[in-house]
Write a protein that binds this DNA or RNA. Sequence first.
RNA 1: GCGCCCGUAGCUCAGUUGGAUAGAGCGCUUGCCUCCGGAGCAAGAGGCCGCAAGUUCGAAUCUUGCCGGGCGUACCA
Length: 671
Amino acid sequence: MLASLIEEIKAKFIQHVQSHYGYSVSQLIVEQPPKVELGDLAFPFCFELAKYLKRPPRQVATEVASSVGTFPGVAKIQVAGPGYINVFLKRGDFFKQLFQTSHQRPVSATSPAQTKEKIILEHTNINPNKAAHIGHLRNAVLGDTFARLLRCSGESVEVQNYIDDTGVQVADVVVGFKYLEKKNLQAVQAIPGKFDYYCWDLYAKVSSSYEQSLESQELRSDTLKLIEEGHNDTAELAHYISHKIVQCHLDTMWRMGIQYDLLPKESDILHLKFWHYAFALLKKTGAIHFETSGKNQGCWIMRVGEKNSPATKEPVAESGSERDFEEGKIIVRSNGTVTYVGKDIAYQLWKFGLLGMDFFYHPFHRYPNGHTVYMTTSDNNQQSGQAQFGGGQRVYNVIDSRQSYLQNIVIAGLRALGFQEQADKSTHFSYEMVALSPRCCEDLGIQLSEADRQRPYVEVSGRKGLGVKADDLIDILLEKSLQEVRNRHSDLDETEMKRIATTIAVSALRYFLLRYTRNSVIAFDFKEALSFEGETGPYVQYAVVRANNILKKVQEEDSSCSPDSVQLFVQTVGTGAFPDERIEDEFWKLIYLASQLEPNVRLSIQTSEPATLTKYLFALAQAFNLFYHRHRIISEVDPLKKRFLLALTRILRDQLEQGLNLLGITVPAKM
RNA sequence: GCGCCCGUAGCUCAGUUGGAUAGAGCGCUUGCCUCCGGAGCAAGAGGCCGCAAGUUCGAAUCUUGCCGGGCGUACCA
């Protein structure tokens, strides 16, 4: 809504400057004046123009402002400060429009034609050998939120959660069961309780046993080989473990409102020979080469220059000494096995539909909301359903920033194969890790070395079993919010209380993980994560609950304020009955802020930064709370003003609620 | 060594493609329920935006150098 208005104004300014001064403004920037009194939109282009004309900016601005004419939707234009042109919008018209559209989806309604690209978004990707921890939650919440943002703007998105079921980590747990605990498949199946928690501890035990003996490390590589070969007891055990753990992860993520469309398995990439085909391609194009000497003798490696422009990089002019430059990344080991990156290149090719091969699929799990997530299979007898996956035009991989080197290699691989366009449309959606604050480690009873205690944070380690498990954290949050609900609403029945508590717990956790920008390390701290006050999800939820209470109550008590009569009133805003002057700065500020949902959603998508939207929603909730405290709406005596305040309340409620939904947060009736 | 990221209030963090007086939460101090729910609101204290140069009408933001921290740079992922 606002976007199209701004575009019109911009176009007119550009045209005006062009025809009057023969100057084309390179980039017409629009910003917001620091105060409402100064206007709604600020245009600083006169500084640039003044420089070109070699005249004082303020003088130029005055000239432009007085000669440019009028704009639809604009009340007046003013020159301010050293040479800004500030635009004041017609408040009534703007308000009316916002009211009519505020219940619609924030972006799609006014979006220009969408790209019609199919987007593949990969996230979560937890090794299926242990319980999920907070770091995994950050990944999944970021990915899920971004998927919601894309979908809301009309994009078609397929969410994939890659399962590394033939990796070393699964092998480690198999080693644990087979050799440390002497358990066969049957015994493993009989393990009671949370299986992912059991494996969490076992994985830590196995890891420490590796440090003690070399022979157990041999067990690992033998086991890995057996798993890759398949059709043996070990592979069967590994299969059971990884599938069972995947189900645990799906359950955990579902608690957070996160679901997937497809679970592609690494084993299927191997069994269906995706890799063989990709390998042949890579060899043919010379993207990789066979090392005949040196450290990496017998390996196939890919040379990658600095940054993400690898093969295209011109040979570096070496200065002076002959330093041994980039050795490249090993794609195929000397024993002939493929590294993870190699498989990832094949997977990425498949995502773009460049492999000319496909998986088979079968339904793996049906969510309570009816959605089915499929899993790949190599057995075409297992194929069921008509599901089609892959073949996207754009790919986002949500993977933490520690893997950016590997992600660059995957993209460089595409480039080396001549798939420039796909390489350009591959995005590593990277984010920094979640670490533990030293205080958090103390809370967990973890012994820290003196050196660690001095650090700002301690890295989570699955191998050491060092971390906060996702389910534990959700449980703690749930218990805490249930207690709060109990204190406030003892009249509700237990099921209802639990339902409310769940939305609050999810809200607190999702908001906590989203409020940090992606490249900020989160030093996890229980006190902050468990807070429901201040800049938190529950704070924003609460604002919506309050708004709903007002709207509900006024309908019960005052028949002259029905939705219809408010709607009728809004028609008269901006006319003699309720002129623009009655929309005071205080209210206008709120209206204008509420209209910023769509721009913020767009910006979040453009920059792949959900934190932008998250912060905006908090600011909007804050503004609402201020409004709430300063005005008694229900007892307002002026009937017109009362309706105006109600209409404003509805707008704010709608914008907040829609924004929260995009973050995966729902609003309870009470809280 | 090389690559990427970070350094903003006591703490945790925002700060749109350079823009007007650098913001928020927490913590601290002091207030606010004759109430549409206090998971709230108001006020106050608290800043050489790591340091130094440069680019320009204008720099927390861009460039370079330095200082400090993190993560990569595995025949792990």
